[in-house]
Nucleic acid binder design. Structure first.
Lengths: 351, 351
DNA sequence: GTGAAAGCGCTAACAA
DNA sequence: TTGTTAGCGCTTTCAC
């Protein structure tokens, strides 16, 4: 293994000089700098990560705590993770992968052993047992999603309340008077997952404000569940003409079910989803949707951590305003063969 | 921060004694051991990871290199990753997440800086530029999938050749004489990805051996692509009665397309998939399938690395025999209202 | 069965 | 602008 001493000897300088050339933390004459850089390349030197971490009290590693539970939407998780890793690398950091089932103890383990410098925690519940632990930890963290009390934390999330409301508004603007929210599996609500609850809140509030009927129901991921749920909805609410879906895996089956039941989209039933853009665009017809900005949230999370690691402050709660795109799946309630969709995107200014 | 010196002082012993109590690398009188353990708990001591890594030349971290490219099947990746992390934790290791787009340089970076002790590399191509790098690296690695030349490596994979053949055999056993392989998007084949190529090989060979017609086609992930591909297949091969699918995201759309085209499954068209069990079971009808044992492969990969880290040898190439489960989606070619499926599972003994 | 002490390879005062 | 040196917190030899 090539050490900094080898490089120093090869370049005829002190080890500290090599260190300073590499870190740029003090000015070096261009002559020595070049000699050192040549030696580094000639010997193929790579600083030893542990030695560096031990001496500098910084591992340059971020922890990413990812859920692997039931009901979570996998592709979105991957997008998050990819964005976190990519952004971390841009700031010269690596990412240690933890699963949520290590629990609060896992956070303490990697933090207190100085394995990582900071943490990104995904899928935060309203009353999350990891939150008090994070508050006490001697290092910065960022939550994706946010608990009931976000004081003293740094949280980033899509504004799901506004997203739910945005969907209602879109449908109400098109003249729909009766609509339903097809949500995540009930297990997700029972875990008190923030995003599911908040969408529901936004949906219900907006329905009240707009004076339209808004019913809500969870839905499991099986075809049978989708069929059963939709049949029940249509039976209980025969005048239902609008559907808001926050449950990515059932989107395909849902379109299929509607077809089977003889409801055309958008002529007989308007559909709005809260999902990734590529999923919305892959359907037939393409879905009007509020996008889930996984990449932006992941990148923002890492950037907040880097900010905090540099000693600066980061905002307590960052809610991204929902971006709505009208596509072919939603149309006027009273006009059974017109669609809205030209793909224009709007940003909710209320957030 | 609590250091080993603090613990030593608190327990009235030398630092080395604390170290030995923790590692169990030499015998300690039960008296001192208990006193030390009490002090560890009382002070909430956690060994510093970098110091330990520096002194012991072992970081206890494994690198996991995961692809985030187009055409890759996301849920399976997550299952792999989850299994790798969970298994690594069982052996007291952590997992550093790298994306494949860091390339060979990324492997060198984490290996030569001693950030990690070993690597798991996923989604290996037949002629993968990372393979020569891995061969030179001063630490063990395991590949998921395998290149054309696996000499001197440790590779683990499902036996996709046997899997492709198994699907053909199942359909041929049911009397089907003309079948098609609906594969991954063409980009995956163009990247010379091993699993796609090998399934194709197994499919073609078995079709030849069984004397049945076997045609192959890639298929993109859009609904339109599925519809177009199936229409073309049916047009070019009007007697087609069997379909083998190796492309998880199109499974839902495919069932839908067949329904639209008036082909009942399994009465008019038998379907066999190569996919995760839960995906197969979620469909209507449930799909006969060869499972992708992501969890087992992930766990095996980590265990091989742990073995190699302990200085022992690991086999060059481990191919898991395909496990086939007959479900409701496949039936006799000549008997348009019988299905095979009682869920019995068979293991291909040829592998 | 236990302790003392020498590093592991690097960073960052402190000196010059 | 550069060099000297004292750690960072742990493991592991060596000595008893």
């Amino acid at each position: 293994m090539v050490t900094i001493a080898d490089v120093a000897r090869h370049a005829g300088v002190a080890a500290s000089t090599v260190s300073y050339v590499l870190s740029g933390k003090r000015s070096i004459s261009s002559d020595t700098r070049e000699r050192v850089q040549r030696s580094v390349r000639a010997l193929g030197y790579r600083p030893n990560a542990s030695a560096r971490a031990l001496a500098s009290q910084r591992s340059n590693v971020l922890a990413l705590v990812i859920p692997l539970r039931t009901g979570m939407h996998v592709p979105v998780m991957m997008q998050f993770a990819a964005a976190v890793v990519t952004t971390a690398r841009r700031y010269d950091h690596d990412v240690l992968l933890l699963t949520a089932d290590e629990g609060p103890e896992g956070l303490q383990r990697v933090a207190q052993s100085s394995l990582v410098d900071a943490l990104v925690v995904m899928d935060v519940e309203l009353d999350d047992e990891r939150v008090p632990v994070l508050r006490e930890l001697p290092m910065p963290s960022v939550l994706i999603g946010y608990p009931a009390d976000s004081e003293g934390l740094t949280c980033i999330d899509l504004d799901f309340v506004a997203a739910g409301a945005r969907c209602v508004d879109h449908l109400a603007d098109l003249g729909h008077r009766s609509m339903a929210l097809l949500g995540t599996p009930s297990a997700v609500y029972e875990r008190q997952t923030g995003f599911a609850q908040r969408t529901l809140t936004g949906f219900a509030e907006a329905a009240g404000q707009r004076g339209v009927v808004g019913v809500e129901t969870p839905c499991e991921h099986t075809f049978a569940a989708v069929l059963g749920t939709v049949e029940r909805l249509l039976h209980d609410h025969p005048d239902l003409t609008g559907l808001v879906v926050q449950n990515e895996p059932i989107i395909g089956p849902l379109l299929d079910v509607l077809r089977r039941l003889g409801r055309r989209v958008p002529e007989d039933m308007s559909l709005v989803a809260i999902c990734a853009d590529d999923v919305a665009e892959r359907q037939v017809p393409q879905l009007s949707s509020v996008t889930i900005p996984a990449e932006r949230i992941g990148a923002l999370a890492v950037e907040s951590l880097i900010t905090k690691l540099s000693g600066a402050e980061a905002p307590e709660l960052t809610l991204l305003p929902p971006e709505f795109t009208a596509r072919g799946s939603s149309g006027r309630a009273d006009d059974s063969d017109t669609t809205t969709g030209q793909g224009e995107r709007t940003v909710d200014r209320r957030a």
